Computed example of a mutant assay.
Amino acid sequence: MNTAPQAMLLEKREEPFDDPRYVFEPKIDGHRLLLVKDGDTVRLWTRHENEVTQKYPELHVPPLNCSSCIIDGEIAYVDPTTGMIDFEAVMERFRMAKQPMIQEGMLRLPVQYFVFDVLEVDGRDVRRLPLTKRTELLDSIMTETDHFRRVMQIDGCGKDLFQVIQQKQLEGIVAKRKDSSYVGRRSDNWLKMINYTYANVKIAGYRKNEFGWLAQHNGRSVGIIELAVPGNHRKAFYRIAQDIVIGEDKNFVYVKPLITARIRMRNWYKSGMMRTPEFVEFVV
Score class of each variant (00 low, 15 high):
E278P: 02
L44N: 05
T276I: 09
I224F: 12
Y269K: 13
E51D: 04
D29Y: 01
A175E: 05
L191M: 11
V229Y: 02
R95F: 12
M101P: 01
I225R: 03
L119E: 09
E136F: 13
R177M: 09
V126L: 04
E74S: 08
R239K: 13
V61I: 03
M142F: 03
G156A: 08
M101I: 13
G219Y: 07
A261T: 08
D18N: 15
S67P: 05
M274K: 01
I70H: 00
T132N: 12
I194P: 06
L59Y: 00
M274I: 11
I173R: 00
L227T: 09
L9C: 09
D188S: 10
S221Q: 14
Q112G: 02
D40A: 07
T81K: 15
P63D: 02
G219L: 08
K192P: 04
P230C: 10
K178D: 05
T197S: 12
N209H: 14
R177C: 10
N251V: 11
A204V: 03
N200H: 11
T3E: 14
L109Q: 05
Y22N: 02
F211K: 00
S187G: 05
L34W: 00
D125A: 11
G30P: 06
R134W: 00
R234K: 14
Q6I: 15
T276F: 11
I165R: 01
A228I: 03
P80E: 04
I28T: 09
D160T: 13
